[in-house]
């Protein structure tokens, strides 16, 4: 299998710090709200909900003051700077290509696409006019892609 995007390996300590975060999950509607309201390129103009930090704190089970002007300072205690740097690197890269898997980490560390509302899905589908055609009317490239997944037309055996 081809290697995914090349990205610098994380130092082992940072990788360990990230793993130590455990299975904490973000509020489930966070991604949906972000996705519905803004594209990724516009995230920089969006203000976070006021209660976001409080909710993240509750999930982490820690009482730490919200960061003021410094990224994630103190949130992870003594390992804050290392973990924050890793999150910046990983998060920044993920934002610019949200579905990429950083190969610097194990292939197991991937960003999974969240649930998307039906209204958003319908909006995406409405951007194009879809026309059902026979398999023969599809291009050779489409046929090749389908063939790679095991899809050959019945007529391929005619």
């Amino acid at each position: 299998m081809s290697q995914p995007s090349h990205q610098p390996d994380l130092p082992q300590q940072i990788a360990q710090d990230l793993r130590a975060l455990g299975g904490v999950q973000a509020p489930s509607e966070l991604w949906q709200r972000v996705q519905e309201e803004r594209s990724f390129t516009e995230l920089g103009e969006v203000a976070a909900p006021e209660e976001l930090w409080a909710r993240v704190q509750a999930e982490l089970g820690m009482e730490v003051a919200a960061p003021q002007g410094r990224l994630l300072r103190g949130i992870f205690g003594g390992k804050s700077l290392a973990a924050a740097a890793a999150l910046l690197i990983f998060g920044g890269l993920s934002i610019f290509n949200p579905w990429s898997s950083p190969s610097g980490l194990s292939q197991d560390f991937v960003v999974l696409a969240p649930q998307t509302s039906e209204s958003a899905r319908e909006a995406f589908r409405s951007r194009a006019q879809f026309q059902k055609v026979t398999p023969q009317e599809m291009s050779s490239i489409s046929r090749g892609l389908a063939g790679s997944l095991g899809g050959f037309m019945v007529e391929d055996d005619a």
Binding site: L21, V24, L43, G44, L71, A84, L87, L88, G91, G92
Partner: peptide
């Protein structure tokens, strides 16, 4: 810096969602 903070908070939430211990 505020933008950077927001990006990292969002990224950290995404990452935590996918983090495999």
């Amino acid at each position: 810096m505020r933008t950077l903070s927001l990006l990292s908070l969002v990224a950290s939430s995404l990452f935590l969602l996918a983090c495999d211990p």
